[in-house]
Simulated scan of single mutants.
Amino acid sequence: MANNTPYRLVTNLKYWLLASGGLVVGMALLYVSGLSWFEDHESFGTLANQLGGLLVASVALATLWDLVGRRSFFKEMLEVLELKQDVSASGLTGIGTDYRKIVDWDDCLHSAKRLDIFAAWATTWRNNNQVNLQQIASRNDAKIRVCLPDPTDPNCIKSLAARFNTSQNDVRGKINEAIEGYKKIDANGSATGRVEIYTTSVFRAFTAYRIDSQFVVTLYHHKDNRRGLFPALTCREGGSLFAFFEEDLEGTLDASTKVYP
């Protein structure tokens, strides 16, 4: 079978030829530096001895690098490249532990034409971005779709109450307040059609926002104390992560009940 690595063979051959030549020259310099002639020319003898020792040591170090270091470095680079390829294929553009800083929300929402919100209620996020959300809802070429839990589904309410360590009445109240809050974004509930609200009994494992061609996703943790930071990531359209969250969102919306307008 023909060898498929000719450049590698040529490179290795050049290296070993140079290394052999350097070793021969170094040994020769060490040898001649001990000849009687150099006893009368001590400075030349010292120079020849040092040059010979340097060549021999350099060849030895280079050989160790070629046999051990270069191969380890090559394997490390392969791991880095494979990771880079995985990240590129996934479309991951950012990752952190604070959804408030994972993207510039003002910049993302200011010119957004398509916004999908998949959350339990996202009261804090909605209040922080109220102005931008109203601006989006005021544009004829923009649309906001909101997918919230179903406040009339007992199992859904019970699951959310357990997740967020609160009462079922509080959960139901937060969801209803969110529904009314998102209605007000639509020109104070005038039903322009630019804001759509859906409810579903799907149990939420994360919060997701699709802003035009990117997703911002925040994960949940499962400890009793819900305070602290949460993993958050962003991904662009065209990557496998975006495709997953898009398919998941659209599938959920297809099985949801439209409650507004």
Rank of each mutant, 00 (worst) to 15 (best):
A57F: 09
A112T: 07
I95N: 00
V68E: 05
L148W: 05
L83G: 03
L61N: 03
P151K: 03
A122G: 00
N140D: 14
L61Q: 05
T152H: 10
L78V: 12
K84M: 09
E82A: 14
F74Q: 13
L55P: 09
A60R: 03
E82G: 00
P151M: 04
A120F: 13
L54C: 12
G69M: 04
C108V: 09
R70P: 05
V87N: 02
D150N: 14
E76C: 02
G94E: 00
E76Y: 11
I144M: 07
K75F: 03
N132V: 02
W125D: 02
N132L: 13
G91E: 01
N129A: 06
I157T: 11
L83V: 07
K84D: 14
M77A: 11
N140C: 01
Q85D: 15
C156S: 15
N155F: 07
A137C: 09
R139T: 08
I102P: 05
R145D: 11
L51F: 14
K101R: 12
K84Y: 04
S138F: 01
Q135F: 11
H110F: 10
N129Y: 09
G91N: 02
H110E: 13
A112R: 04
A60H: 08
A122K: 05
K158N: 14
A89Y: 01
K84Q: 13
I157M: 06
N140T: 13
V87R: 08
R71K: 15
L64C: 09
N128Q: 12
S88M: 07
A119C: 08
G69D: 01
I144Y: 03
V59P: 08
L54M: 15
S72R: 11
D141F: 01
G91R: 00
R139V: 09
N128I: 06
K143E: 12
V131S: 14
I157A: 02
I95T: 02
V131F: 11
T97R: 03
N132H: 15
A112Y: 04
E76S: 14
G94L: 00
G94M: 00
K101G: 06
T124I: 02
D86T: 08
L92A: 03
L83F: 10
D150G: 05
A119F: 04
A89Q: 11
D86I: 12
I144T: 08
W65C: 10
C147S: 13
A142V: 09
Q85I: 06
Q85W: 02
C108F: 02
N127Q: 11
L54T: 14
S58F: 14
W65Q: 13
N155E: 12
G91P: 01
W105D: 10
G94A: 05
G96S: 02
I144W: 03
L55I: 10
I144S: 07
A60K: 06
S138G: 09
A89M: 06
L61I: 15
V59T: 10
P154W: 00
L78T: 13
W125F: 10
D98Y: 02
N128D: 15
N155D: 15
R139E: 07
A137S: 12
Y99E: 07
T93N: 01
L83D: 09
F118V: 13
D141S: 07
V103A: 03
G53N: 12
I157R: 04
L81F: 06
R100G: 04
K158E: 13
L61D: 06
Q135L: 15
W125C: 01
R70W: 08
